[in-house]
């Protein structure tokens, strides 16, 4: 696409740029609630304020707020304040299949609220298998191509929203090349989310190739589906591997719809922001009288190796 736009601008003899005054009305800042709840973590939200588009100071956190959490309509907790707009519960983790409402009020702002249902199910994984191909990388080392096949069962009775990530853990080696042969001087433990692709054209180009894949069950509602994750790693030159063989953990999540909509619209907004001719995408928000997102998920960890 980039090449296409370069070509469009090819006939332009001289591009020209002018700063223009546009009368954009300035509204009073609103509260921004950002929170992702899951049954494994204590309830936690972040509170900040929105900013006028032509201002560009750093986003401001809201520190003096009162934040209440309701569970199925009953007051559950009032969150404690930490630094940088963080508010958390000291003991309570959200429960599956329960509805949570967060109400935030701070002086100078209109009260904002948001609501989310913690997903009931975890992902039902039927099987996980790996196909590997090892290829010479042309430098005397090897590239391992892996295809991780995750066979999962979808629940037909509800609209499911999924998120998949791949956590790689390995030692990274450093050598002293002044000696002959080079000697190993240090190794560092690395734990990182891998960038991966998916062997299924269903997944949009902007959604695949990152560290998280977000999708819903519209293609396989109530059926089994095999997700094929493509991953590869280099083992380094002959005799001097870059790293130890990684071990992988799949992070499989059943997410709320708000998680799905938010993540998708955020990536769409940034995806289209390069294209001045495309209509900009409005990011999904479920916050009333404010901005931001209250979302939720359950995670299942699955060791791959």
């Amino acid at each position: 696409m980039k090449k296409l736009f370069i070509l469009i601008l090819l006939p332009v003899l001289i591009g020209c740029e002018t700063v223009v005054e546009i009368d954009v009305p300035r509204n009073r800042p609103s509260l921004v609630i950002n929170s992702t709840l899951n049954p494994d973590s204590l309830i936690h939200i972040n509170l900040s304020e929105s900013r006028y588009i032509l201002d560009n100071y750093d986003f401001r956190y809201v520190e003096n707020a009162s934040v209440s959490v309701y569970e199925d309509g009953v007051l559950l907790d009032t969150l404690s304040h930490g630094a940088e707009g963080n508010y958390f519960s000291s003991s309570i983790k959200p429960k599956r299949n329960k509805d949570y409402q967060i109400l935030a009020s701070a002086s100078g702002f209109v009260d904002a609220s948001a609501e989310v249902l913690i997903p009931k199910d975890s992902i039902t994984v039927l099987s996980v298998s790996i196909d590997s191909v090892v290829q010479n990388n042309g430098f005397g080392g090897y590239i391992t191509y892996q295809r991780i096949n995750v066979e999962m069962q979808d629940n037909a009775s509800i609209n499911n929203f999924y998120s998949v990530s791949l956590l790689g853990e390995y030692y990274y080696y450093q050598y002293n090349y002044d000696t002959n042969p080079p000697t190993l001087v240090d190794s560092t433990f690395v734990s990182t989310l891998e960038y991966f692709n998916v062997d299924d054209p269903y997944f949009e180009d902007y959604n695949s190739g990152g560290t998280e894949l977000i999708f819903n069950d519209e293609l396989f509602n109530g059926k089994t589906y095999t997700l094929r994750i493509l991953n590869s790693y280099y083992e380094g030159d002959d005799g001097f591997p870059y790293s130890s063989n990684p071990t992988y953990t799949l992070l499989l999540r059943n997410t709320s719809e708000s998680y799905y909509l938010y993540k998708n619209t955020v990536s769409l907004q940034s995806w289209t922001s390069d294209n001045p001719f495309a209509q900009p995408v409005q990011v999904y928000t479920n916050v009333t009288n404010g901005y931001g997102i209250l979302s939720a998920y359950n995670t299942t960890f699955y060791k791959v190796n």
Binding site: V24, S30, V32, S35, N46, R51, Y52, I53, V283, T299
Partner: peptide, 18 residues
Amino acid sequence: SLPNETYMGTDESLNNYY
């Protein structure tokens, strides 16, 4: 279409581990 406000987003896909 021009934006009139901007606000902080969140990306907790990394689970705050890293």
